[in-house]
Write a protein that binds this DNA or RNA. Structure first.
Lengths: 217, 217
DNA sequence: ACCTGAACACCGTTCAAGT
DNA sequence: ACCTGAACACCGTTCAAGT
């Protein structure tokens, strides 16, 4: 009798399908929920099937990071203002790191730059050189802004939501004689992560601008 | 017959003894080696004995972080120059975060400020207020500098030693037409984490200084 | 009061086996 | 070529029991 066609030739898994599942789990249940077993259950597949497509979990997460950073930069194009460009790039990266607290660490610990990272670096270095910064300073400024953006955003993401309130209360409760500054300023502390991030970014950009003016004198 | 004295009244464990053991293990084998079982073997004690002194592992690591930050600030005293003070505080904190890559995350995720952190905040806010910054700006500047220092240092610590060399090679190998800036600058990238950190810190301090001068005009 | 030890509910990963 | 499933070597933590 007629035999049915041989078993499915199309693989059920692929790198993209796995990355999609990672993102779905991370977004709905948090990054700590992304385990091989959870991934297997999400896709109705044995947990160890993942190893047919990625060497290990780190390689999978790195691929996810690359996807997220590419997505974050989609549609960016230089505006004519180096300052606006750097702000735009930093803001896009920040949003990604806020949504995925562990991403920056993964990227930093990788043993090669992600493709997305090369593209971001290219764009940011382009902005700094167009601004007129000499190459040696462009590198230092790039590293400073990159570290600031990735670092502060990751730490902001790690601090629990509504954590600011608890810290203000703790600071306000400290003895005034020993902590005169903190006592006085307590009500203002950690109110707006976003404002603090932009303040610090603008400090750096202001100083770069001042440096450029000094050099053209 | 004479009975020996009752069993040892002095506990074999204490919070300080456990923190010491953590530091010994972290320094010699890296932070990932600090497990409850390893802690037990280090002290010749059952791994679960730790729970008599700390609620969970996080509480233990937070106590370790507090110890390290107190140690880092030992001997600091205001110099008369707000700028030198902030630089000194940031450099001390950076050294600690470089030596312990996960510390900043722990501190950020804690549900209350560490005692050491209150003291550091008090000193840094004092410097910014002495500089002449209004309170609302002092808070933002403090948060920016704190995040920059903790963030970049933690990320620098996470990147493998000698990682810079691999990244330079990868950047140099990119197609020049698509990555003109990165190709040109590749040999200069990620050469000196320390120089980049100080460059970024000085950018922020320069901008704060400029702001102060503008306000007194 | 403090520590032990078995046990539980997890991890990432390897490897021989299936289809 | 791709997936399964048992197994290994780990984790943090709980709880009843010992002394």
């Amino acid at each position: 009798m007629a035999r049915t066609a041989p078993e499915p030739l199309t693989p059920r898994l692929s790198r993209d399908v796995l990355i999609d599942a990672c993102l779905r789990i991370a977004d709905s249940e948090g990054p700590e929920a992304v385990t091989m077993r959870r991934l297997g259950s999400e896709l109705g597949v044995d947990p160890t099937a993942v190893y047919r497509h990625f060497r290990d979990k780190t390689e999978l997460l790195i691929a996810m990071a690359d996807r997220l950073l590419i997505e974050a930069m989609r549609g960016f194009s230089p505006s004519g203002s180096w300052r606006a460009d750097l702000r735009d790039l930093a803001t896009r990266a920040r949003r990604t790191y806020l949504a995925h607290p562990r991403l920056a660490f993964l990227v930093a610990a990788a043993d090669a730059p992600l493709p997305s990272e090369s593209r971001i670096s290219e764009m940011a270095l382009g902005a700094l050189r167009r601004a007129g910064l000499p190459d040696n300073e462009a590198v230092l400024a790039f590293q400073a802004i990159e570290g600031y953006t990735a670092g502060t955003s990751s730490l902001d993401a790690a601090s629990g939501p509504g954590g600011g309130e608890a810290w203000r209360r703790a600071f306000a409760a400290l003895p005034e004689e020993e902590f005169p500054n903190l006592s006085a300023i307590a009500p203002l502390m950690y109110r707006e992560d976003e404002a603090a991030f932009e303040f610090g970014l603008d400090l750096m950009l202001d100083a770069i601008e001042a440096r450029l003016e000094a050099e053209t004198d």
